[in-house]
Design a protein around this nucleic acid. Structure first.
Lengths: 339, 339
DNA sequence: TTGAAAGCGCTAACAT
DNA sequence: ATGTTAGCGCTTTCAA
């Protein structure tokens, strides 16, 4: 470790550490001659300031905590990229942790992050409606912004999940589908999933159709569970179309159906949610509703920055939930019902 | 900010700060009664230790610098997930920065990371063969491990790019293809791309065929450039198969070809490199060679840990480059040549 | 223009 | 078993 300190520089240059510090942070308060000597010393010792010390002294770190379920889902990876680029431009660095959709990990990670004294937090939690974690952040006065969690009460950046889901499902009803099933991860574990289910219900009701109970399955599955597959293929009341709570699920469903020799869209129409770029490359291409992941990240940074700016209960707090527009992406995974 | 310090706790509990510190770090040196009171005080003040102070004092941070080109490529996102989970288990946190394949950003980011006094660094650089950045890390004695950059001289974790590329291309020659083109990003900007081109040459030579110059294109392209497309479709000497330097490129190529009404694999066979899971969902499914991204990340952590362990020039240093096995993933994007 | 010194929050000698 | 104190590297009054 090449750890030369400001003290070494001071000795080498023949000045006090205070002057060295000034030479770096307020060069105009130092005589040109001195400045030159100090710069030379810095160069000679290849001195690099210790951010830890600066941060401890300053009481702020320029560190940003980012807490997301997983980077294995491109939705979040893209979002992080958006955060990173926006934050980097402002001189902020990212401390990244993942929770694997586990509330306990969420709490633990957030603790770690705040102990590191991050200046703020951008996070996606399983359920924002009742989160002791978020309550504590608020109580502690630690600025944070949620991503993907849509909330009226808390600072957040997301699409309108309910409306977006309804839009997606309308793609199906418009084609004449009357029996539409929603496939999703565990509802109780995700506020977004519930909101999307509501959108599903909205669209069906609007079309005068009956909403079915959400069909919940294990998210990590590599393929659809047998139970699900048989509900889709064998049941006498099998649906003619499915709305998937996210694209990963939709893609898994497409594969499983293909393996089960069910033609998409001929025998089963599918619409997803997320807008993963790769869905367009599939054959058939996946119809879905796109979330602007990169922008969600970038905007979350903006929101956070305004909350860290010092203006506590100002304009920024008037409307905590930011809704970004979603976009329908048509695709060949949707067709008319076969019957 | 709820920043109660160890001092507040000490006052509240009626002991010295040293005792409070011991209560947390060496409870067996504190009497049970005292311990209880201190715990009560900690609870009452909801005290959380300031990692910055601990780190400054200890001279180590349990912080890990991670520097990658972009999270928009799932290859890297998955790798980070592997790093994160392995490191988290050992109590390490990730400081993440992205360089967008820009050497200047790489250097700048690495500087920032070391100024934060990360205990070690995991990174993927544009070119590891001649990197002032890596030389400086070495000179400064900062432990680091490369991912994806395959090197004999430097600590690294990767597949055998050359051998893997040759395996991929052999999928093509085995089908009887005689005119095979390699599509890649800028060779001069990527050591891996050059290694893969060598593998391409190996396989062709071995098959008694002539290696063509690599066809370099802009990585960010949303579709193949016109020049490329015409070389693939219109040229009298058009290839019957292409080897793409990575899966993203292969998928873009598949789409562009489809739009140009070229059938894959009937008129053009394609093999990729990376093994993105989504390639399997395409139609036709993408033949490719899989890199174990998650494992690369996890193993990189292992390597780094052994290098941070204090054993400097020990066994760990004997063989700096770790090669993980790649795996051929067959797919329907390959067929026999049409002619 | 420069220096001396306090202090950010914490741990680890060194005392008692 | 507990307290006192020095010091990690830095910035910032306050003096000179």
């Amino acid at each position: 470790m090449n750890s030369s300190t400001i003290k070494h520089v001071a000795e080498h240059a023949g000045f006090s550490i205070a002057t060295v510090s000034r030479a770096m942070n307020a060069p105009h308060m130092v005589s040109p001659a001195t400045l030159a000597k100090i710069h030379a010393a810095i160069e000679a010792l290849s001195f690099q300031p210790n951010y830890l010390a600066q941060q401890l002294r300053a009481g702020r770190t320029q560190l940003l905590g980012v807490l997301l379920p997983t980077l294995a889902n491109p939705v979040f990876a893209e979002c992080v990229q958006g955060i990173e680029e926006a934050a980097a431009q402002a001189g902020y660095r990212l401390l990244l942790m993942t929770s694997r959709y586990d509330p306990e990990s969420e709490a633990h990670a957030a603790q770690t992050l705040t102990n590191q004294r991050v200046d703020g937090l951008i996070l996606t939690v399983a359920d924002a409606t009742q989160s002791p974690l978020l309550d504590r952040l608020e109580a502690d006065g630690i600025p944070y912004v949620l991503t993907y969690n849509q909330s009226m009460k808390r600072p957040s950046v997301s699409v309108d999940n309910r409306a977006a889901a309804a839009d997606a499902v309308r793609l199906l009803t418009a084609q004449g589908h009357r029996r539409i099933l929603m496939l999703t991860g565990t509802l109780s574990a995700s506020d977004r999933a519930r909101q999307r289910y509501q959108g599903y219900c909205d669209a069906l009701r609007q079309a005068g159709l009956k909403a079915l109970p959400a069909h919940e399955i294990d998210f990590n599955a590599q393929g659809l569970p047998a139970r699900t597959l048989s509900a889709l293929c064998d049941s006498p009341h099998r649906p003619s179309a499915i709305f998937c709570g996210n694209d990963l699920l939709a893609m898994v469903a497409m594969r499983s159906l293909r393996e089960a020799a069910m033609a998409v869209p001929a025998q089963m129409s599918i619409v997803g949610f997320d807008g993963l770029p790769v869905g367009e490359l599939l054959a058939p291409s996946l119809a879905t509703v796109c979330q602007p992941n990169y922008e969600i990240g970038a905007r979350a940074w903006q929101e956070l920055a305004s909350r860290m700016g010092g203006a506590p209960a100002s304009r920024a707090k008037q409307r905590p939930g930011v809704i970004l527009p979603h976009r329908i992406r048509p695709g060949d995974s949707i067709g008319a019902p076969s019957s």
